[in-house]
């Protein structure tokens, strides 16, 4: 029961911060709302019995990634987004389509709740460092290595895009 209350409370905060992040016009505020959202998600992981994943979420996402975000926003001086966006009829349309998507998904789930039983609970503690490390280097070694290739080309790409093209374009 207590867990259920905690869940709904946190879910409310998560949705509210996500909305606030999109709606607010100040990029720094957006980033800070995102930090809050990521922290709430980390608490979800704690509730699910995965403390290590929760800590990684806070250290990597709420910490490192968001510091980089804020740093870039402030360096570019782009904290204020321009007043009007020139998107006039798109806003209500996007709202209607979004509502249709939510409605459709809810319809799909609520129509036959009997068939959608929860898929067994994971072992507790779930995702402890030893287990994650072992999986990464055995079962999931290929996806793990491909991720490193992915990060490598992302880095190459950043260099390509940021490179000074020089006096006559190299």
């Amino acid at each position: 029961m207590g867990e259920l209350i905690a869940f709904y409370l946190l879910a409310g905060i998560a949705v509210a911060t996500a909305l606030a992040m999109v709606i607010t016009r100040n990029a720094v505020h957006s980033a800070l709302f995102l930090v809050l959202n990521l922290v709430v998600v980390a608490v979800f992981y704690l509730l699910l019995g995965a403390p290590f994943v929760a800590m990684v979420q806070i250290a990597v996402y709420a910490g490192a990634v968001m510091v980089l975000f804020l740093f870039v926003i402030m360096m570019l001086g782009a904290e204020r987004v321009g007043g009007t966006t020139g998107l006039r009829w798109q806003v209500p349309l996007a709202g209607a389509l979004g509502a249709a998507l939510i409605g459709g998904t809810l319809f799909a789930f609520l129509r036959a709740p009997a068939g959608l039983a929860p898929v067994g609970s994971p072992p507790v503690p779930f995702g402890d460092p030893a287990a994650i490390g072992e999986r990464l280097l055995t079962t999931y070694v290929l996806p793990f290595e491909i991720t490193s290739v992915l990060l490598l080309i992302a880095m190459i790409g950043a260099v390509v895009l940021a490179r000074d093209s020089g006096p006559e374009g190299k």
Binding site: Y140, I146, L150, A154, G157, V160, L161
Partner: peptide, 24 residues
């Protein structure tokens, strides 16, 4: 699904960069 998504993203990111390669 994990392999599928990672492979898709690897291709995607490389191609976004190639499409915009003539940055100037």
């Amino acid at each position: 699904l994990v392999m599928l998504y990672l492979a898709l993203e690897t291709v995607g990111i490389a191609l976004y960069l190639l499409a915009g390669y003539l940055r100037d």
